[in-house]
């Protein structure tokens, strides 16, 4: 995935069963953002892989004051890349294990 300066990781182990999963997001490189992020905190949230979109969550983070509105796309892309990896793993790895 492209280095966006915003890191997104699983905040819990993925057993491939729940559609909702906990993710943790933090800024690794503030210079890649257009605006100043709120602080250096890691933001933990749940994301529903079936019902929600990364764009929705990124918009809510902007509205909650974590990021400048000009950074909504880079935050959404960071979440989208991680979600794509989680879904890739679920489709290819979990059927083999089970």
């Amino acid at each position: 995935a492209e280095d966006t300066g915003v890191r997104v990781e699983l905040a819990e182990e993925d057993h491939g069963r729940k559609s909702s999963i906990a993710l943790r997001l933090w800024v690794e490189d503030p210079k890649k953002l257009k605006g100043k992020p709120k602080d250096n905190g890691a933001i933990e949230f749940t994301f529903d892989l079936e019902k929600e979109t990364p764009d929705d969550v990124a918009q809510e983070m902007v509205e909650s004051g974590f990021f400048h509105e000009n950074d909504v796309k880079i935050v959404a892309k960071s979440i989208r890349d991680r979600v794509a990896l989680i879904q890739w793993r679920r489709e290819r790895i979990w059927p083999i294990i089970q």
């Binding site: 933090w26 933990e44 949230f45 809510e60």
Partner: peptide, 27 residues
Amino acid sequence: SSLTQVVHSAGRRFIVSPVPESRLREQ
């Protein structure tokens, strides 16, 4: 505690905690 919780009007809960120094890229 150093945890902060922010609830968006749509209902999503954001829990903010400090990022360990080891996880931050060197500036």
